[in-house]
């Protein structure tokens, strides 16, 4: 009896459609964001993450309307990320009905933005998204580095140290994506997930690489994640949220059924 681990379906949205690519290329259409969000809500998703991957300011208005439409029909927590660069961006998303915002690139370029945002809106709604890649050679001690621009640009920042710093600055949650695994269906990078989850006192969401339900189980049990995020296994009907929750419950993980 206690706090349940969470399953978070992720909607990567480009030009008003849910898409899913493999390692950020080879985009595939997965439907209307509002319809997809409603379906996951009905299936028992614990939360929904909406990532605006268009990142062009012209489409920001479309995103605001979409968040409004989802928030008026889906009564579970909603996190919105993608292109969040200023407190004004955060205010608009929260007013549109988001409960939390994900900050990624802007945190790398200006860590003080995270502090300012947490002070103004409260840590509970500031999720810092980290894209990490393994950079240690085979046989050496594990080391992961932060990358930006969809995994293309290295920053020289150590992922575990960066996560700790972001929590100190006020992040209320860490969304950790393994760029090596994203879209591969080979499972989470459990090493970096566990290293960060054990290093910080706030919840960690594991992301990147889910291909089957055992990957979700491993993310919690071996990766020590507080929540697991997946996209394509749910979008294309391979598994339902309910099936995922049942598998996790069978593995002894406390879930909201």
């Amino acid at each position: 009896m206690g706090l349940a681990k969470r399953i978070i379906p992720c909607l990567d949205v480009d030009n008003g459609r849910v898409v899913k690519g493999v390692q950020f290329v080879d985009i595939r259409d997965a439907g209307d964001p509002v319809e997809v969000a409603k379906r996951y809500n009905e299936q028992g998703a614990d939360e929904i993450t909406f990532l605006d991957i268009t990142a062009s300011s012209d489409d920001r208005e479309t995103t605001v309307h979409m968040v409004e439409a989802i928030a008026s029909q889906v009564f579970i927590p909603l996190t919105v990320g993608g292109g969040i660069r200023t407190c004004e961006d955060i205010r608009r998303m929260l007013n549109a009905g988001a409960d939390k915002v994900g900050i990624n690139t802007a945190a790398v370029f200006n860590p003080e933005f995270v502090r300012e945002a947490a002070q103004r809106f409260g840590s509970q709604c500031i999720v810092v998204a980290i894209d990490a890649k393994k950079v240690s050679a085979e046989g050496d001690a594990d080391k992961w580095e932060i990358f930006t621009h969809g995994g293309r640009k290295p920053t020289g920042l150590d992922a575990v140290e960066w996560a700790k710093k972001m929590v100190e600055y006020g992040a209320g949650e860490i969304l950790l994506t393994s760029m090596d695994r994203d879209g591969t269906k080979n499972g989470f990078d459990l090493g970096v997930t566990r290293a960060i989850s054990e290093a910080v006192h706030v919840p960690v969401i594991a992301s990147g690489g889910v291909g089957n339900l055992d990957h979700l189980v491993n993310g919690v049990i071996e990766g020590k994640a507080d929540a697991v995020l997946a996209a394509s296994i749910f979008h294309f009907g391979e598994y339902s949220i309910q099936e995922a929750k049942q598998r996790m419950t069978d593995a002894g993980i406390e879930m909201r059924l």
Partner: peptide, 21 residues
């Protein structure tokens, strides 16, 4: 507290975030 522990001594995350009974 940042060192909040469960009944069995394991570490608990703070904030208490998610679905509880």
């Amino acid at each position: 507290g940042e060192n909040h522990k469960d009944h069995d001594g394991s570490k608990l995350k703070v904030p208490h975030m998610g679905w509880n009974q």
